[in-house]
């Protein structure tokens, strides 16, 4: 997967996270915190994660590879990691 594709995926993460913010649609920065800055609560995080999985066709990741997310940047890294693993496995 090329750097361009990965950058596109990261941009897509930012777009979806911003679009689904409980505070209303916005353009988040990578350093924005998902809960504190973008207003996500537990159910909104589940909704956002499920939408991301559908839109980006994400697979389940191994437990040892799972990272938690506080900021939008963490979420971008997680998604890119999943896409890289899928690329390596194919």
């Amino acid at each position: 997967m090329s750097a361009v594709d990965l950058e596109h995926a990261a941009a897509e993460v930012r777009r979806l996270v911003g679009q689904m913010s409980p505070l209303g649609p916005r353009e988040p920065a990578s350093e924005d915190r998902i809960i504190e800055d973008l207003g996500y609560d537990s159910l909104a995080i589940v909704e956002m994660a499920m939408t991301l999985e559908t839109e980006l066709d994400l697979d389940r990741i191994p437990e040892e590879a799972a990272i938690d997310v506080v900021t939008v940047k963490h979420l971008e890294e997680l998604v890119i990691g999943i896409l890289r693993r899928r690329e390596d496995a194919s």
Partner: peptide
């Protein structure tokens, strides 16, 4: 039952 990939979402789902 849906199991989100994102760990924070998975925990939130499980807690629910």
């Amino acid at each position: 039952s849906a199991a989100p990939v994102v760990p924070a979402a998975l925990r939130a789902r499980a807690a629910q």
